[in-house]
Amino acid sequence: MSDSLYNPFIDLIFDDHFCFLSGDLTTESMTVFPEWLMDHFKFGEDKIEMMDKMKSYTYADLKLPCSAQVKNAFSELDEKIQAAYSKGFEGMKALDEELLFLWTGRMVYGLLYYEMAYESSRLQKIGQEFRLSESLKNRFGYFHLMLQSIIKPITFKGKKPWSIAVFKLKYSADIFSFRDDAINLLFSFGVNGFGFIACLQDNGVIGAKQKEILEKISGHVLHPLQFEELYARFHYSDYILNYAPKYKVENVEGKITIEIANSEQDAQFGFWDEDVFSQLLSNYWQVYGIQKKDILQFQKPPKSFLENPYTKDFIKPESISLPF
């Protein structure tokens, strides 16, 4: 990793006085979730809990210390995303994936930052030291480095280090749906018109594993149940993935290139346990009253709204009778 760029995971620095991205001293801040998004969907005053469920914030209260340069860079990015958003699926699909990576990465990293800062403060109060495993330090450090491409001359060489899938999606109202797993750098985003799923540091491995179903849904307007099932497949694939992303970072006269250093062949997926997956999926489908016992029944294939369990044909969204 380049020694010339700020890496808060070396010394685990999550302090309000230092810009979260550049490390510069600052008194400014920016919201974790874009202000236009919170205003449009009116969720700024809604509560979000930390992972241990002991601490909560409103979305509007989640703010990252940042330099003026970083704040301006993300403001410009927000304008591009908002313009694409106004054009619906076609606008979002036409975006360079790197812009979606940076925009999504800002929210995922912001949530990760709060988890790190909260845990560090909690342990300090009881006289304990905050620590992370070397593998997590390494992973988060590379993720942070990639985000710095919004303000630094950093480019990605060859295959991109993420999987991002954008698809058509239908809701019956102006709804904003998102799920995140900040520790595993996953995010899903859905509104009436389109949705996308992002695995922000899988080196494209999970996207490749889900290639067949992604090809099947192409051109179709997904039902929300299908959207949730698709994210569950990505999420569980990440859970059973045995793969440590590696990168080759070169700095030539201040210009940095990041290249994937290990191949898809190095990735191994563990056993797909339908019992565990059904429990995960039921958590996503619970708003429809669908429980694990409805998904996994004795002597029947697991329930799916994406594929016919016998023929593996794609299930047409219009054939699903449950409400949007």
Rank of each mutant, 00 (worst) to 15 (best):
F43R: 04
R122N: 08
G219M: 08
K170C: 12
V70T: 15
G195A: 15
K157G: 01
I81F: 02
V191Q: 07
S149H: 01
E228N: 12
I13E: 13
D275Y: 14
D275Q: 13
S218T: 14
G270H: 12
D46H: 13
T31Q: 11
G204M: 09
F74A: 01
H40V: 03
N283W: 07
I295F: 01
D273N: 15
S67P: 08
D16C: 04
D46N: 14
I217S: 01
L132Y: 07
I258R: 04
S22Q: 06
E28I: 03
K170R: 15
S149E: 03
Y236R: 05
N138Y: 13
K292F: 05
M107C: 08
F269Q: 02
I10H: 11
D52Q: 10
D52L: 10
D313T: 14
D238Q: 13
V221N: 12
Y247K: 00
G91K: 01
L200T: 05
Q279V: 11
Y236M: 06
S237D: 14
L25K: 14
G44D: 08
K312P: 02
L123D: 08
I81G: 03
K211E: 15
S2E: 12
M146N: 03
K42H: 12
I217A: 01
S2Q: 10
R106S: 07
T311P: 05
F234L: 11
A173L: 10
D15Y: 09
L169D: 02
Q226M: 07
I151G: 05
F305T: 05
W36C: 09
L281D: 01
D39N: 14
I213A: 01
L136E: 12
L185G: 03
L280A: 06
V70W: 02
G190Q: 03
L21P: 00
Q286H: 12
L230C: 10
L145E: 03
S2M: 08
L281F: 09
G195W: 01
S4T: 14
L25A: 12
S86I: 05
P161V: 05
L200Q: 04
I48V: 15
Y239L: 10
E134F: 11
K93L: 14
A232D: 04
K300V: 00
W285R: 04
G254R: 09
F156R: 00
R122G: 02
F176E: 01
S86H: 12
F20M: 10
L12E: 06
Q69C: 07
E28K: 14
A165L: 08
G254L: 08
A261N: 12
D275L: 09
G88C: 10
E229R: 08
M51P: 01
Q299D: 15
D238M: 09
S22W: 07
F227I: 00
S282R: 07
K93V: 06
D275N: 14
N184Y: 12
Y113G: 02
M92N: 05
P302W: 04
E79D: 15
L230Q: 04
L186M: 13
K316N: 11
L322W: 06
S188D: 15
V221P: 05
R139K: 11
M38N: 02
G105K: 03
S278F: 00
E250Q: 14
A261V: 03
A165F: 08
I206F: 03
Q286N: 13
K246W: 02
Q128Y: 12
E307F: 08
M92D: 06
K152Y: 05
S135N: 13
F305M: 10
Y310S: 11
F43M: 09
L99P: 00
L132H: 08
L281W: 04
D294F: 06
I126L: 11
A83L: 10
F196S: 00
Q268D: 10
K170G: 10
